[in-house]
Design a protein around this nucleic acid. Structure first.
Lengths: 241, 241
DNA sequence: CGCCTTTGGGCCAATAACAGACCATTGATG
DNA sequence: CATCAATGGTCTGTTATTGGCCCAAAGGCG
């Protein structure tokens, strides 16, 4: 990006697509990030439409298309709803190649850079502020959850852990940015096989991140998060070249 | 924000308003951030509509309303266009109070936290990567521009300096996030009188930021940016209580 | 069993937004 | 002074999106 491209930075597209497409994308995010886990259901259409700021008709079209694509199963009547049927595919090396093929290298670099900046920033901000007992507890609980995760739930709880850090700062804007960042690489992350050595390694790094935040040491938090993210980033970049 | 509010983080509104409102907002950003300075003109309608991803009709309505509000002056014919007439008001203390009244305290805290995270992250990412000669030059030039700024142009060049850091990372997502963050506090910043002691103080901090980045020292970059932003943040917070 | 509540399903009329074609104005330039 | 190219101004028909209303299914409860 050239320095003179300031116009491009600010005068960028006002909307990413039409309401239908954006809604599909958003719901897919919720599903793939595991915000709504397998077997759970989305909020009722009427409520969800309000949350998303769109009409119920548009929402229903989006749900319909996700249901056609096999992500959701819709049931009518009381206690009905749109239930998540999606499970992360068990990834092989081919899976990752395929996922990477959907993304060009500039886009990948953008996403990785963005994620690095925003997650490091969030962790430091959190570490730089005095933490309440409740915040400490939440952080420790999320950490314990990832560490005890069933391998099938690993990605979901890992995401939950990372997002919690941003949410604990109390800034919805920051939490949204981290969710966005995570999302840009989810398909890739989900395509990486979850192996025990990787989990152990990540667990140690997660511990370091939490320790730095609890110690209210921003510099250490930065180092811990940067190291953690650099790991997967390097792995993904490696597959591209 | 409660930890269980993950739904709120991801299932947030798909669009902030209708196309017209969002367009007005975006153009106002470009004007207030000084991306298009006083006397300069916006890109031609046809081109701008493409950039913003909206129809020309909608864009024209937005331009019309900004022109009615006195931000723009539209001239027809070749070499015509929408020229920026807006100049930042010379602020007094009352100005700041008024600007703060438009924002509740949660919103302000959100914006300040977001800005802190995202600008610190950007500076660190930039400092953590090997810099090209061109990048170094751009950075130094922007710094010199702020330092030599006519007081009337100070805010604009200050914004340019901060945005450059994010842009130099080469990540449009990150640059967009920084622009967004800056924007959330522009009205407040513009309402703070620009006094010589403040300029001198900021200049020293800007020097420190650039020095840290050029030295490729992320930790120092974090400290420098955090200190710089904390200054204005504390000032603004002070006015609220 | 019959009713009630919650939830998805369908439909319709009104409005927003768009794409594209064409007109009008203006200043430079030959 | 006539022409041309770039630019804003206007119109028209089409598509997307909305809000509101009512229907249909399904499970719980008296």
């Amino acid at each position: 990006m050239k320095g003179s491209d300031r116009l491009t930075t600010v005068l960028r597209p006002v909307r990413a697509g039409n309401a239908f497409e954006e809604t599909v994308e958003r719901l897919l995010q919720a599903i793939k990030l595991g915000v709504v886990g397998p077997g759970e259901k989305l909020p009722p259409e009427r409520e969800l439409a309000v949350r998303l700021g769109i009409s119920r008709v548009t929402l229903r079209e989006a749900i319909r298309s996700l249901s056609d694509a096999g992500y959701l199963e819709v049931r009518r009547g009381r206690y009905g709803g749109a239930f998540v049927t999606y499970r992360q595919p068990d990834p092989g090396a081919g899976e990752l190649r395929r996922a990477l093929a959907d993304m060009d290298s500039a886009e990948l670099a953008d996403a990785l850079t963005f994620r690095m900046a925003v997650e490091c920033g969030a962790a430091q901000v959190l570490a730089a502020s005095p933490l309440s007992a409740a915040q400490r507890t939440t952080l420790r609980r999320r950490l314990a959850e990832v560490n005890n995760a069933d391998p099938r739930d690993y990605r979901r709880l890992d995401t939950a852990f990372h997002l919690s850090i941003a949410e604990l700062t109390g800034s919805p804007l920051l939490a949204g940015a981290c969710a966005e960042a995570r999302l840009r690489v989810t398909d890739l992350l989900n395509a990486i096989p979850v192996l025990q050595p990787n989990i152990d390694h990540a667990a140690a790094q997660h511990e370091a991140i939490v320790a730095a935040i609890l110690a209210e040491d921003p510099a250490a938090a930065y180092r811990a998060v940067a190291e953690h993210l650099e790991g997967t980033a390097a792995l993904l970049r490696g597959f591209l070249s």
